[in-house]
Measured scan of single mutants.
Amino acid sequence: IGSLMYASIFGNVSAIIQRLYSGTARYHTQMLRVREFIRFHQIPNPLRQRLEEYFQHAWSYTNGIDMNAVLKGFPECLQADICLHLNRSLLQHCKPFRGATKGCLRALAMKFKTTHAPPGDTLVHAGDLLTALYFISRGSIEILRGDVVVAILGKNDIFGEPLNLYARPGKSNGDVRALTYCDLHKIHRDDLLEVLDMYPEFSDHFWSSLEITFNLRDTNMIPGSPGSTELEGGFSRQRKRKLSFRRRTDKDTEQPGEVSALGPGRAGAGPSSRGRPGGPWGESPSSGPSSPESSEDEGPGRSSSPLRLVPFSSPRPPGEPPGGEPLMEDCEKSSDTCNPLSGAFSGVSNIFSFWGDSRGRQYQELPRCPAPTPSLLNIPLSSPGRRPRGDVESRLDALQRQLNRLETRLSADMATVLQLLQRQMTLVPPAYSAVTTPGPGPTSTSPLLPVSPLPTLTLDSLSQVSQFMACEELPPGAPELPQEGPTRRLSLPGQLGALTSQPLHRHGSDPG
């Protein structure tokens, strides 16, 4: 009997000691992992102490058991019943959930998450997105703005933001810190809205009876308010094209079509300037034949640059190039080494500058006005007194259609001029006259002087055409309008007829 009692007592005591040691061994194993994590990542002392304290409290609170892992091991129907039991206190005593059906309560219970916070733990920081609604079931918390405590909340209090009033989550206007050990039930806004969409009859009752104890939403960050730039940057990543407008005076608003859609830094370009900076079609017209890549860069430059609305530039004389043409100036200075066709295309550029300027006046029909002061630039669209967005969009579309028509007509005119030049060069190729044979009589004449090349004649003739079109064909006081194609086609051969009437002889060394 004594040996039996000794064996039973010894066996029970050893089993008890073994169970104690097993729990202690698990605790030390998990604690060792936490300390190894702290050492590996070199976490500083204040945060390291918070980690160790939280682990110790969580171990004593749950005995080292992962409740979520245990809950996920059950089937979904059983999980709903378990969640309904775990959140029964909240669902029974909170006013917004009263009167809900059994199915609605089960769906809500599945969406709730339980959070346990030790003292000093910050649940929400200032500036964080308010993605959830919090219900306090135990403990107390404090809300701070800077170093000032603005509120202390306790059991059955609710904090967050009214989700039904805002389409997008706002930002917190303060820090939420736990004063004691707290148990909180939180539900994400997407989950709550999903359940309320499934039960629309409960939705009206819920929003009407929901009383948020403390609204954390920062009202200064609401979209459309003066301080909402940061919020707009976070939620409006896919922005449309940006529009900046110059201020319109009362006198300017009476004149229709007073602005032109141009790229940034293009205030001095012609009315047909689009795409790359520098001139019509993204580059100076005089350098068009020598740089074919300008047409390839036109599309990307047009689509990537934001639109700006600026006044037209001052008018340019008909014979003056659009500006920024070092290529043609070098050719004029060193005409001995340049291609003979460069002079002809220089005359073509003069005609283009004249036609572009006159067509700009035809479509816009307003006098040039000086540029406004820099303080009046970049007025935002949302400022008071601005035109409605639809009106601005319609004006932009009208300007775009005008620019497209202008570009089409300029292309047709350019093709006409090039065809005339090619026809003239085919009839009378460039050549130098040879020395004529002296006559049989004693009164022999001296050799004839060489005839100037055709490109120079073409430049003079085209300059005469531009001056003739600019000065004589337009009646005084009438708006400057571009001439039609047949009129220009008839004027060019008439001007060139006198020049080509002389018999030109080919030089023996000319390969053409």
Rank of each mutant, 00 (worst) to 15 (best):
P264L: 10
P226A: 03
E473L: 08
P453Y: 12
T337W: 06
T408C: 13
R386I: 05
D191V: 03
F312K: 12
G127D: 03
P440N: 05
T253H: 13
L243F: 10
M414V: 14
L366Y: 08
L496Y: 06
R189N: 07
P429N: 09
R177N: 03
A398M: 03
P285D: 12
S349D: 15
P370V: 09
C471K: 08
D357R: 06
P486S: 11
L129K: 10
P315C: 09
F202R: 02
P169Y: 03
I222V: 14
L231Y: 12
T426E: 07
N173D: 06
S272K: 04
G360I: 13
G441M: 07
H185I: 09
L459S: 12
M221E: 12
C182K: 01
D460R: 11
P486A: 03
E473G: 12
V149S: 05
L377M: 10
S461N: 13
E298D: 15
K240M: 12
D250H: 12
C471P: 08
D297R: 12
R217C: 05
E230H: 11
C182H: 01
N350F: 03
N404F: 15
A344Y: 09
P271Y: 07
L381M: 11
Q483A: 10
I152H: 05
D128I: 01
G146F: 06
S137N: 11
A431G: 09
A371R: 08
R368A: 13
A478I: 12
L133R: 02
G347P: 04
P326M: 12
L403W: 04
S358V: 09
Q424H: 07
S209G: 10
T249R: 09
A132V: 05
Q502R: 12
L366K: 11
R247T: 11
L381R: 13
I136Y: 01
D330G: 12
A261M: 13
C369G: 10
L133P: 02
P475C: 12
G441V: 13
D204R: 10
G360A: 13
I222W: 13
L499Y: 09
P317L: 15
T337K: 06
D460A: 09
Q255L: 10
A261I: 13
P226S: 13
G360C: 11
L129W: 06
E258K: 07
E320M: 14
S349G: 10
L165D: 10
L153H: 01
S304T: 07
P285L: 10
L327R: 10
T373K: 07
V195K: 01
R241H: 11
K242A: 12
D197H: 14
P271F: 13
S272Y: 12
T408K: 14
R274P: 08
L481R: 08
Y134V: 05
E407P: 03
L193Y: 07
M469H: 12
S228D: 14
E298S: 11
Q419M: 11
I187H: 01
G441Q: 15
D183Y: 09
S294L: 04
S291I: 15
P223V: 12
G282V: 13
K242W: 13
F352C: 04
Q483D: 15
N173W: 11
P271A: 07
Y199V: 02
W207L: 12
P300L: 03
S287D: 15
D183A: 10
P226F: 11
E211T: 10
R145H: 09
R386F: 07
Q255N: 14
R168V: 08
A167V: 10
L499S: 11
R405Q: 05
I136A: 01
P318Q: 15
G257E: 13
T337I: 11
S446M: 12
D413W: 03
R217L: 03
S346L: 06
L243E: 12
R239D: 11
G441C: 05
S334E: 07
H507M: 09
V195L: 04
P503T: 12
G282D: 11
Q238E: 10
A478Q: 05
G441P: 13
L192R: 02
L504C: 06
N378R: 14
S209K: 15
G497K: 13
I351H: 09
R316A: 15
G494W: 13
P311E: 08
A178I: 03
N215W: 01
D397M: 09
A178N: 01
S137K: 08
P511I: 06
I212G: 03
L403E: 03
L481K: 11
E230M: 11
G512N: 08
L366V: 12
S236K: 12
P162W: 03
I141G: 01
K240T: 06
P306Q: 14
P223C: 07
P503V: 06
L406R: 03
T436H: 12
S172M: 02
R389F: 12
P223K: 05
Q483T: 10
N404H: 12
F352A: 12
A167K: 07
I141S: 01
L410N: 06
N350D: 10
A431I: 12
P447N: 14
A415C: 08
F206I: 03
E232Q: 12
I152R: 06
I152D: 01
K186M: 14
S335A: 04
H505M: 06
E473V: 12
V465Q: 12
G233C: 12
P450W: 01
R189W: 09
R386W: 15
L481D: 12
L504E: 13
M425V: 13
Q495P: 13
D157L: 02
E329A: 13
D397P: 07
E258R: 08
S287E: 12
E142W: 01
E194L: 06
